[in-house]
């Protein structure tokens, strides 16, 4: 039946083994994607007519910012699956997302601020976009702290999941902040509904970078998840057998 794969995903042992087999391939693809995107973006793509080479930060900043929100949505959805179906694996996946999401958020904030100094004339201003992205960082940090604050794993799972779900309202706020309010940050150059306001010669390396960052997320989340599985299943038969071998 169509649901069997879903329930199989719920088996820590099955997932641990299959993820271990996929891991090297995903890492390989990630490295290829990141190298192609970086070389294309930094050396082959033309400079911007106005900002010059300064515009090249877009190839890191935009993917990092995109992934910081993407990771949060995934984290919240799997937290909801965990709460509704009482699925251990979904909780573990959700927990594994927050450190990676926090890293992406920090990267987006730092690269944006380094770009802001020469472009705007300031590293930081409390406009709607920058502030809501900063709140996202705090949400990730809070999620990690809340999960680690409780000794009982079930309480920890549930409280972290609720925080993840409640915090998801921040995601549309970040996305639309530049349209709803006057902000210093410019509106989006890339959007699904409209023709991108970025030239094609710069668009392709950007799309490759975004795709490679997604692969990078998967490469990062699998080892985190496998570690969490091992730790939480440490009393089960298969983990003991594996360690003794």
């Amino acid at each position: 039946m169509a649901w069997t794969w879903f329930f199989r995903l719920g088996s820590p042992k099955w997932f641990y083994q299959i993820a271990g087999r996929w891991q090297p391939w995903i890492w390989g693809l990630t490295l290829i994607g990141l190298s192609v995107g970086t070389v294309w973006g930094l050396f082959i793509a033309p400079p911007d007519y106005y900002q010059g080479d300064l515009a090249r930060i877009i190839y890191i900043h935009v993917p990092a910012a995109y992934l910081s929100m993407f990771t949060y949505v995934i984290m919240a959805v799997s937290a909801a699956i965990g709460l509704i179906w009482r699925m251990k694996m979904a909780f573990m996946f959700s927990i594994s997302c927050s450190p990676i999401g926090a890293a992406f958020t920090l990267l987006a904030l730092v690269t944006g601020s380094l770009w802001g100094k020469p472009t705007w004339g300031t590293y930081w201003v409390f406009d709607a976009r920058l502030t809501s992205e900063l709140i996202l960082l705090f949400l990730y940090l809070g999620h990690m702290a809340l999960y680690n604050a409780s000794d009982d794993i079930k309480t920890a799972d549930k409280s972290a999941a609720i925080l993840a779900i409640v915090g998801v309202v921040n995601i549309p706020i970040i996305h639309y902040s530049v349209e709803w309010w006057n902000s210093l940050h410019q509106p989006a150059s890339l959007s699904k509904l409209a023709k991108p306001s970025i030239d094609e010669s710069m668009l392709w390396p950007l799309l490759i970078m975004i795709f490679s960052f997604k692969l990078f997320f998967i490469s990062m989340v699998l080892p985190w998840l496998r570690n969490n599985i091992l730790w939480r299943e440490r009393d089960s038969q298969w983990v003991r057998e594996m360690i003794e071998k």
Partner: peptide, 16 residues
């Protein structure tokens, strides 16, 4: 103080 606000358009010099 005066800050410059950048727009969302990115293009190579030739296109401009």
């Amino acid at each position: 103080s005066v800050l410059a606000k950048h727009d969302e358009n990115y293009m190579p010099p030739e296109v401009a």
